[in-house]
């Protein structure tokens, strides 16, 4: 789930619409917590990964969303937060009209404490409706950029690891050993880009734990298409009545980190707008259909993605 601004909007200081040109905001301070590995229970809503977190006294559900660069709050519940920057109008970057940037204080994921966090406030009703679960916001990657996370969807557990001086999870703290697949990734504009191949065609994928399916850009994968079996062709209608057509199809082989994933499913659409939001064009997005194949660890410091096959370790 991506498409948020790139974060530059938070560099200037703005108080309720008045921007101070010569004042520059300091980056969000690092989080703290008395743990080496924090074990956080996960909930599921459809194919979304839900983690409960707390902002001051408000507690609720957040989507673990590596497609979001940082914290995003649902405007339904946070539209009265102070504005520190307005966002561009909808269309260019995919953010909804009326979106703005704010900052929150005392954000906690169990024992992991963030004294201050920059956050976008935007409409997330499309996620909430149909899931019947209250979504306060999205946990983007910047929350974990000094850490590593392991997501075990077979036991619905999230491990948040502190890293040693080498940027590694200390061996004694590893929940799983002997990864089945390891791949480096590029971390650009707080988005994870993984190089892979679909039916032997090299592609760059964004890894998005908030995408409930894999996605590919229709124009960029045209040569892959002939012969692909179509599961369905559907139209989706969004806020404001805009609709997009998508094709849901099967493709045989996805190769990531030298490992082959077979029987893949993908939504074909136009990813231009999403690429603009990422600040980098993208051929495809790896979502649920990919990450449900195993337990995955993202080390944001070493910029390494690992996948484990479950063996009750």
């Amino acid at each position: 789930m991506a498409g948020w601004q790139k974060g530059e909007c938070s560099s200037l200081v703005s108080v309720n619409g008045i921007t101070f040109k010569n004042a520059v905001r300091s980056p969000d301070p690092d989080p703290s917590g008395d743990f080496n590995t924090l074990i956080v229970p996960i909930k599921r809503a459809g194919n979304l990964i839900i983690v409960e977190a707390q902002i001051d006294s408000v507690a609720g559900n957040f989507v673990l969303d590596t497609g979001a660069p940082y914290l995003v709050l649902n405007a339904t519940y946070f539209r009265d937060m102070p504005h520190i920057a307005e966002q561009e109008s909808a269309g260019l970057n995919g953010s909804a009209p009326g979106s703005f940037t704010t900052e929150v204080h005392n954000f906690n994921i169990l024992d992991l404490h963030y004294p201050r966090l920059t956050a976008d406030v935007t409409d997330l009703s499309a996620i909430e409706n149909g899931k019947n679960i209250k979504i306060l916001g999205l946990l983007g990657t910047r929350l974990f950029n000094k850490l590593a996370i392991t997501v075990d969807l077979f036991r619905n557990t999230l491990y948040i690891h502190k890293l040693n001086d080498d940027g590694e999870i200390p061996l004694a703290e590893k929940a799983f050993h002997d990864p089945w697949m390891v791949t480096p990734f590029k971390y650009m504009n707080d988005i994870i880009f993984i190089k892979g191949a679909a039916n032997n065609n090299t592609m760059w994928f964004a890894f998005d734990s908030g995408a409930e399916t894999n996605l590919m850009d229709y124009d960029r994968v045209r040569k892959l298409l002939p012969g692909m079996q179509v599961i369905s062709r559907t139209k989706t209608t969004g806020v404001g009545g805009s609709s997009s057509e998508v094709i849901y199809a099967r493709f045989d082989t996805l190769t990531i980190g030298g490992r082959r994933f077979i029987k893949n499913r993908v939504l074909l659409t136009n990813l231009d707008k999403m690429g603009k939001a990422y600040g980098h064009s993208v051929d495809g997005i790896l979502g649920y259909d990919f990450f449900i194949r195993g337990i995955f660890t993202i080390n944001f410091v070493k910029k390494e993605f690992e996948m484990y096959i479950y063996t009750n370790q």
């Binding site: 789930m1 991506a2 498409g3 948020w4 599921r44 459809g46 194919n47 979304l48 497609g67 909808a90 269309g91 970057n93 995919g94 953010s95 997330l124 499309a126 996620i127 409706n129 149909g130 899931k131 998005d208 908030g210 995408a211 409930e212 399916t213 996605l215 229709y218 124009d219 599961i231 369905s232 559907t234 989706t236 969004g238 805009s242 609709s243 997009s244 057509e245 998508v246 094709i247 849901y248 499913r265 939504l267 074909l268 659409t269 136009n270 990813l271 231009d272 707008k273 999403m274 939001a277 997005i285 979502g287 649920y288 259909d289 449900i292």
Partner: peptide, 23 residues
């Protein structure tokens, strides 16, 4: 038609897409 009105965020098309739910 796939290029018309491209979605700005993946969730706008994947959240309420019913073709791939395990539940």
């Amino acid at each position: 038609a796939l290029n018309a009105n491209p979605p700005g965020q993946p969730y706008l098309i994947t959240s309420n897409f019913s073709g791939d739910k395990d539940t």
